[in-house]
Amino acid sequence: MYGIFMESVVIFKLYGGNGVLTILYLFSLVFLLIRERDRTVRRLFVWLPLLYLFLFFCPLFRKLYVRVMHAGDTQYRMLWLCPMGMTVACAGCRLASWLPMRGAHLTVKRFFDRLLLPALTAVLILLCGSLVYRNPYVTRAENAWHIPQEAVEVCDAIRHDYGGGYRVRVAVPEDLVHFIRQYDTDLILAYGRDIVAYGYYNRVREALDAPGIIDMTELSEALRETEADYLVMKREKETDHAPEEENWFLCAQTDEYLIYRDVKRSVD
């Protein structure tokens, strides 16, 4: 039971990241518990979240959750029932509302006071949190699809080459795997995101994304085993011998990628 409890503790820590925002939330919770006069707000934003927190850390509940959901990796979503944002915002507003109600004669000092406490709360949020747009995974959109333009060009080049109307199998390097099918689902992949994300073995990926020089014979065999029609390779990637020697015909290219078609399958 202690082990299960510690698992929940680890999930809670991971959820809170640096933990400062969690502390701000807990402070807000205590503040509302002490200062909030409205029973409804106290019930909804204090007592119910405390109940959910208790359940979250309860080992028996975790066992039940894992059994019902068939996975424990989504248990952190239980914490969504403790509305951190609304609780902190509510506590911040209550702090601000200590100051006189509007309609009272507004002096420069009062106006300053009305801004001071909210501004302090806002600064606390900014200092404790992390700006979402500074996340390294947030980049400037290159097109309306919000996927790399190179992926769009690769898909267009392949479609242009075979003419569309049916589905073809394509092997692409790891950095395109997430995007190709977000643009064109007529392209079937030799391996997908699951292989990359969970590190499963896949012969094509092992050969295509191998560090250093690509063993073209091995890659070609792997591709023919999966009946791939097209091979997309990074321009800077070196091969031990030319893909043409393995009957891969260079049919298109983009700034970063070379696109080969299997001559054998085209002849078939």
Binding site: N18, C128, S130, R134
Partner: peptide, 8 residues
């Protein structure tokens, strides 16, 4: 603000 800075 919480939504924008809540990416902890």
């Amino acid at each position: 603000l919480f939504s924008m800075w809540g990416n902890v």
